[in-house]
Design a protein around this nucleic acid. Structure first.
Lengths: 129, 129
DNA sequence: GCTTGACTTCGAGTGCACTCGAAGGTGCAC
DNA sequence: GTGCACCTTCGAGTGCACTCGAAGTCAAGC
């Protein structure tokens, strides 16, 4: 855990702490093509996460946390990796996901309201439905 | 599909249509103790879903759709089945679930906002972060 | 009375996303 | 120079929630 020399990037343990993903999961994501590129290695072959890696991982986590399947994240990563020229495709992918998330959150909000009503009943402050 | 006689309850196909759950899933839920009681059967041994079954299934669906594990729904169903005297326990269970859902929806809302910002960038209307 | 189609039970199979274990390498602390 | 924590790869295992297939039953229609 030396923070000597001029910052060569985070170890997998540090990246794990920052992203909230387990080291196993970070390796799994890289292996499965979810990272933009292979993460840099130090002279000993160990992963060093650059700020760019971390910020991509943050976005990746947001996509996963909102229910985007790993396979679709992989597709999105491939588009970004391919570079300029496919922005329309990326946009379409993100818009479709956004719409799905919006819909689901709205539905879950309704379910939550029904559950809160149930809680209110059990609390004795039945609000006449 | 006879709607003759004075309504003996819905067939599994009708219950499936109403609840949005597959017939397979409805049977699975019953088998796994997620229903309050075994669903009534007609003289031929086929399931007949009563209004009470349907309304419980609706609640069950809300709990599942908001991420409550099957095992916890089973526990909740067991409490309701046991009858009066455990309202405090039911309330605690529902409150805990409600809190988890609220937290998750808030987080997902943040993720959604970040995704929307990304979409905005791709749409060319970059809003300065 | 025979076909048709939806139903029954049971147990096994599937898909997803991790999660873990084994076997071995590396480098700092003492 | 040896112990130790932490890393590496690889492939296999896990947990969850369905989902399906097989083999058989039943009621209605022709």
């Amino acid at each position: 855990m030396s923070t000597t020399t001029a910052e060569a990037g985070l170890t997998i343990a540090q990246a794990s702490a920052v992203t909230g993903l387990s080291a196993h999961t970070l390796r799994y994501y890289e292996r499965d093509g979810l990272m933009l590129d292979a993460v840099d290695r130090d002279p000993g072959g160990r992963r060093r996460y650059s700020p760019a890696d971390i910020s991509w991982t943050t976005m990746l986590t947001r996509l996963r946390a909102t229910g985007m399947p790993v396979s679709e994240v992989r597709r999105y990563a491939a588009l970004v990796r391919a570079g300029d020229g496919n922005e329309a495709e990326r946009l379409a992918l993100l818009r479709a996901h956004r719409d799905r998330v919006r819909t689901r959150l709205a539905e879950e909000g309704e379910h939550l309201a029904a559950i809160e009503a149930k809680v209110a009943i059990y609390e004795g402050r039945a609000t006449g439905c």
